[in-house]
Computed example of a mutant assay.
Amino acid sequence: MVRFKNRWLLVEFLPSTTFAANTTSTSTSAINSKHIWSALKQSILAHFGDAGWGSVASSLTVKYYSPQTGICIIRVARDQHKVAWAGVTLLSNIEGHVFVPNVIHLSGTIKQAQLAAIQHNREVVARYRSQAGLPAAYQDSYEVYLQTSEEEIEALQD
């Protein structure tokens, strides 16, 4: 029996206010995983054609998306991960909202993608706290957010 080998892309969609002249809102809560999948499909079709889409179509799935942070975990076959990565990088907008995709991590297992997502969330919260000038032991709503996001991410199955 041959095992299906995957690559897991951890992507952060940063809202772009610089190029959003013709959009009304650049909130990440306006999109969901289905929108990301269809935008990624259109990006791959536009830049790599039917052959590019045919190579990744059967294995490309969006396993997780958090509208609060814009973090997304995408699964793709190991041999075609470069086409999917390029498609994500060349993605310009999702459902009319302009985003800048930032590939944070590439891994071979979902567990490593989960750990990278949790670590990234902690770094973002630490950055917010340092910008606000809060002490390290300060208790705020970010603690609850970190706990719930960690539970959501760890609940993912392959």
Rank of each mutant, 00 (worst) to 15 (best):
I73K: 07
L106Q: 11
H81P: 02
A30S: 06
I104H: 09
H35S: 07
A86E: 12
L90C: 06
A51L: 11
L91Y: 05
T89G: 01
Q112Y: 03
T24Q: 14
A77L: 09
A57Y: 11
N32V: 01
V125M: 13
I31S: 01
R122L: 06
L90H: 07
A117W: 03
N102M: 10
V62L: 13
P101L: 10
A30D: 04
K63I: 09
Q68W: 04
E123K: 12
S43Y: 07
E123F: 02
S43A: 15
V83F: 04
V103F: 10
D50I: 01
S38D: 14
I71D: 00
I74F: 06
N93G: 04
H97F: 07
Q112L: 12
N93H: 11
I118S: 05
Y65T: 00
Q80K: 08
A77V: 02
V62G: 05
N121M: 13
A51V: 07
I44S: 03
I118Y: 09
T69Q: 00
L60C: 10
V124P: 01
Q80E: 12
E95M: 06
T61K: 15
T28D: 00
H105S: 12
A117M: 04
Y128H: 11
A113M: 13
A57E: 15
T109E: 05
T109L: 05
G96C: 09
G96T: 09
S58I: 05
H47A: 03
F99P: 00
I31H: 02
H97L: 08
V124K: 07
Q42W: 06
K111H: 15
S33H: 12
R122V: 00
V83C: 08
G54K: 15
